[in-house]
Write a protein that binds this DNA or RNA. Sequence first.
DNA 1: CGTTAGCACTCGAAGCAGATGAGTGCTAAC
DNA 2: GTTAGCACTCATCTGCTTCGAGTGCTAACG
Lengths: 343, 343
Amino acid sequence: MLTDRQRMILNAIVDDYISSAEPVGSRSISKRGDVGYSPATIRNEMADLEDLGYLEQPHTSAGRIPSHKGYRYYVDHLVPWNSAESAEMGTIRAFFAEKLNAMEQVIQHAALVLSNMTNYTSILLGPEVFHTSLRHFQLLPLDDRTAVAIIVTSTGQVENRTVNIPPEVSVSEMEKVVNLLNSKLVNVPLYKLKTRLYSEIGEEMQRHISHYEELMQVLDTALESDQEQRIYLSGATNMLNQPEFKDVDKVKTILDLLEETPTLLKMMAPELGGTGIQVRIGTENNHVAFANCSLITATYSLDGQALGSIGILGPTRMEYARVMGILGILSRDLTAMLAHWYK
Amino acid sequence: MLTDRQRMILNAIVDDYISSAEPVGSRSISKRGDVGYSPATIRNEMADLEDLGYLEQPHTSAGRIPSHKGYRYYVDHLVPWNSAESAEMGTIRAFFAEKLNAMEQVIQHAALVLSNMTNYTSILLGPEVFHTSLRHFQLLPLDDRTAVAIIVTSTGQVENRTVNIPPEVSVSEMEKVVNLLNSKLVNVPLYKLKTRLYSEIGEEMQRHISHYEELMQVLDTALESDQEQRIYLSGATNMLNQPEFKDVDKVKTILDLLEETPTLLKMMAPELGGTGIQVRIGTENNHVAFANCSLITATYSLDGQALGSIGILGPTRMEYARVMGILGILSRDLTAMLAHWYK
DNA sequence: CGTTAGCACTCGAAGCAGATGAGTGCTAAC
DNA sequence: GTTAGCACTCATCTGCTTCGAGTGCTAACG
């Protein structure tokens, strides 16, 4: 719908604004050289672009800045898509070179690397409990009344929970039960554990075990899956580097939001059909506090099914191209790594 | 060294400044009522206090604000010591009412409660590895090449580490070793584990076990104690509420420092002889960035030996009385809880 | 002699006026 | 279709003034 020249100018404006954070005027676009027109011509086009809603003017005699619609167009049509062989590649690959074992560590480290590379805030969502399964279950007695329930998942995570053991239950009985669980529940997805516990094992347990009720209660709390999905944040204070957040109040509302796990979860939850890289600009994140922020997310997956997501939060004036490139590489590599993990 | 009246006035000034964050003038002190003198008299005393170094003037015709020395005097001699039965007590006790099991959870929760109650930043240092001992050791095989080493400590913490098992070592051998470890190393302090491993068990193992070298290597990484002591931060963004930190740059350096674990460790490390509540004002924290901050810390202990510490970081203009009261109560209760924990 | 009233003085904060200049929109010429 | 020229706008900067909170000093008071 836009002419080539309009696209070119819009592109130049967004680029300029991204790096300068100042409204950009017709003269500075003209001087850049890559748009070979005089300021006047550019002014005309800018006026048109403003009418079409791609640009905004903070006030009459200031330069133009991209509107949300402008950013959207930029992201959808103009981003220089140099995902191929970027300089970033090296850093990311180097990060994978360190041998890291448990999935959790990988994710945590990735968050750090991301925020350092981009100077924005990175948000990583751990592999969903949804798709991980039980690899091993164990009860370690601490004393005669308490024990630690240990759940090892297929991604190598180890979760533990302290449980109270009712006095009536004997150690040998506990052992029997644990063996039963390990033989029957291994490879069952975590979120199905509790239902399977009742449906498949209940009957058998009732036959062999006294104090069925009490034991079930213990197991129930033991298998309580760590509902709060792991979220890893890194570089939250990078927000403070951005000139648009030099107002403490604004930044405070954002940082406060970042401490609320549920909000983050909602934001980061992988879109249903959404594969590839998603960009949500300004109000597209459904939160007023993020009106001046953009969130770029990608998912990593196994067998084509999204397992978790990685994201970068920054100002709407964000280095979309670079960040999208980095996220693309990282999500691909994470996916590859997962596949390898499962052999 | 100060006269009663000077003390009274200093106290009034600090109190006023703590709640208003504005330089306080002679008139406002006089109007408060609790100092029954005219502004002129108070002015004279203020001039003296300034000469003595307890007060400062931001500029000639502004009110006075307490100097570091003034805060120090206030904290040492003037803080209304109402630790007895404060309203805070309820909140803290309520927090302990929830039954919480593992030490780790308790600490984490305490950090949250502290920052919420005070509106400052809370920093908690977990129980030192130094004084916790091994309660149980376990190796869970994941597949034929890897296993999870699980260490349960006397404080109920569960640490886990993934280790690679050399192909030459058989499962039954591993079991033998684990049993040996459990029979010999339980109740040994964590930091002594590795030396004990070599001194006491090495010999015996060499007799019964083939592939001694390889196994030792596995155990060595498995017992590697989680060097980085656990630090729990809460309410870091509360810093942004303080008017003295409305300048983004200042707050950024502080928040950045708070993300550096080593720095925090150094700051929070329990003082050697120091028992009770410690207050470090401004530059007494050895960090320029904390020049405008005060850190109040207390320790919790077992058998008279400090295990960890709890602290509140806020502006030098801080509600010392309240915070010190809260920290006092909480540290006492944590200590009591620990004693109970060990029975 | 300690306390207080009075007063001149200081100095930052707030408000205002004019200058500056980046940037625009429009018109007319190329 | 493009561009040069020009009048116009408006945020920002600067210097100036005013205002007032607060001081220090002196002298008077009980």
